[in-house]
């Protein structure tokens, strides 16, 4: 995405290339142009641009892609953490609940 880069070397995106059938769905659904088709197979060309939305993994018909996706905002994650420990809920984290 032009003008914006987030932290390096954190994205959990993984592509098992031998499984890939080259259908190109991951290229279609990725809003950050992380993938490219090289010959008849997809490859990850910009892993650091991945925002872990999970669209590629869900839309891969042969399950060649894995990524740890989920809520990405700080208060949402604090709430997840609190709820796992049954400690209640932080206010203000209901932006998209």
């Amino acid at each position: 995405m032009k003008g914006f880069r987030y932290l390096k070397d954190v994205a959990t995106l993984n592509l098992d290339q031998p499984t890939c059938i080259g259908c190109g769905r991951c290229l279609e659904v990725c809003p950050h142009q992380v993938f490219s088709l090289v010959g008849k197979q997809a490859s990850i060309v910009d892993r650091d641009a991945c925002m872990e939305c999970g669209a590629c993994a869900l839309n891969c018909p042969v399950k060649a892609i894995t990524v740890d996706c989920g809520v990405g905002c700080a208060s949402g994650m604090i709430n997840e953490w609190l709820q796992e420990r049954k400690l209640g809920k932080l206010g203000g984290g209901n932006c998209c609940s």
């Binding site: 995405m1 914006f4 880069r5 987030y6 932290l7 954190v10 994205a11 959990t12 809003p31 950050h32 641009a49 991945c50 925002m51 872990e52 740890d68 996706c69 989920g70 809520v71 990405g72 905002c73 700080a74 208060s75 949402g76 994650m77 604090i78 203000g92 932006c95 998209c96």
Partner: peptide, 23 residues
């Protein structure tokens, strides 16, 4: 810093793993 960190939820380019690392 806390409030701007929370804006990661509104941004269309931050990843969950990145936010975890930041936190």
């Amino acid at each position: 810093a806390f409030h701007t960190l929370n804006f990661t939820g509104c941004s269309p380019y931050t990843s969950r793993s990145g936010v975890k690392k930041e936190m």
